[in-house]
Design a protein around this nucleic acid. Sequence first.
DNA 1: CCAAAACAGGATAATTTTGTCCTGTTTAAA
DNA 2: TTTAAACAGGACAAAATTATCCTGTTTTGG
Lengths: 144, 144
Amino acid sequence: MFSRACEYGIRATILIATHSIVGERVSLKDIARKTDSPLAFTGKVLQQLVKGGIVTSVQGVNGGFEIGRKQMEETRLSQIVAAIDGEQIFRACGLGLQECNAKKPCPLHDKFASIRNDLKTMLEGTSILDLSTGLKDGLTFLQR
Amino acid sequence: MFSRACEYGIRATILIATHSIVGERVSLKDIARKTDSPLAFTGKVLQQLVKGGIVTSVQGVNGGFEIGRKQMEETRLSQIVAAIDGEQIFRACGLGLQECNAKKPCPLHDKFASIRNDLKTMLEGTSILDLSTGLKDGLTFLQR
DNA sequence: CCAAAACAGGATAATTTTGTCCTGTTTAAA
DNA sequence: TTTAAACAGGACAAAATTATCCTGTTTTGG
């Protein structure tokens, strides 16, 4: 569904948020360890998220990644996905046709568009904060 | 969503069905042309579909691919996807965790499972014949 | 029988994705 | 001021996916 890079990015962002909630920064090293992700590669993904304005990075000793309270409330999962995988997943034809629309639909168009739209709605309706609270309370997990 | 290979496979199968409905076979050459797919690669995908029992191939002059009436009624889109991309898409965690379930869910588990299940239901409820009739009647398309 | 059409399948190549390594810069603390 | 922690980013490597090429086998029609 999502690329590896995107999965790592979402996991990293959720972890960062749970730390930011209690006023802490997280280092890439800790992110990689706590989300079971390859360190250097996750670093690249985080660079994309910083550029995309999803999370903030602080260099130097005691640096790391963080995300503001308002940001975690307002940022939607759809934005993380878009920042890493692009908008393709929200628009693309299920059968890979470049020009597939209501006027000239592929055989799966209607049924696929319905699912794709449900996915879009779900991703747009889910904030980083939504995903982080369960993790912070030990109800959800980011490993294995 | 689906791999390229899978998209080609679905498009090929639908095209084969529209020809089989009127008692014709289609050659790989025609399939590639009419579905805008790379010939040799599509050939490989079709080999998988033949092995998977989705379509039948006939060698020699006047050979090609075909699919029986009963097969096209009974075969579900989910089976094509499974034959090429595997069952991953029906089971996998949205965040890529290997062990994500109701007992130990990722933060997105419930919301993602719901969408994934809708997709599964849709694919299992759609037959090759369903997809082929619109194409045969000129209401849907497989190119561009 | 022979030629040509057509699928099967191995080998190889190109591209994309995933992943690692190394060097540089920033920054706080000792 | 020096050191070490930590992110940034370029270069490179590995793996997976996508795509092509070529040879072989099957089969029908002339």
